[in-house]
Design a protein around this nucleic acid. Structure first.
Lengths: 94, 94
DNA sequence: AAAGTATTTCAATTTGAACTAAAATAGATT
DNA sequence: AATCTATTTTAGTTCAAATTGAAATACTTT
């Protein structure tokens, strides 16, 4: 779930700012549709909130729904734990 | 890589003792070949050392090659971080 | 209303990892 | 040398998840 690196990146992108789906998608080199599907997964897990404004949908991380994971992720991005998850996921040896 | 639970279990099994491939495989309910392939992955990453003794190959975790991951894994098995990795991998929302 | 922009959803494809079964390698035992 | 035990390797299968491309939905602008 949050193992998927793109989804973690998305959570980080909208961690403390809203971004429209387009702007989120701009950060990846897969199709808009693919990103939209990642957003759907995050939405279903309630890990992001969506605000509709006219045409656009603004996403933002729902830290509360993340519970203890919120702290964990913040730690990961901030400290020496930064690469823990991705290391564990994808460590390829020295 | 180390995201794969069986591989983490293997590292744990041979964390501070040597075990022959057979004995490692006995801990899983997949075929011997499958386990051997996990061992191959760990070998290629240099995360395990192999000692050949006659017929058998004795495996043991190469903590040094793991670097900081060694500590992280030990922590995971010992403390509240226990489920961090698996939580991150498989969190499915509230 | 027609055309454009933003986004989601769907069906089909691709990809990659793990698995099985079987063949190959190699040392040990009879 | 033939067989047995231990292990790896290979080829092919399976399965889930990510991706694509296209169609569908919905709001905006002209």
């Amino acid at each position: 779930m949050i193992a998927e690196p793109k989804r973690r990146t998305i959570l980080r992108l909208v961690w403390d700012q809203e971004l429209a789906a387009t702007d989120i998608a701009a950060n990846f080199d897969v199709t808009f549709g693919a990103v939209s599907q990642h957003l759907a997964v995050l939405r279903e897990a309630d890990f992001v909130m969506v605000r509709r404004d006219g045409n656009k949908r603004f996403y933002q991380t729902n830290k509360e729904a993340l519970g203890p994971l919120a702290t964990v992720l913040e730690e990961m991005w901030r400290t020496k734990l930064r690469n823990l998850a991705s290391t564990i996921e994808s460590a390829e040896g020295p």
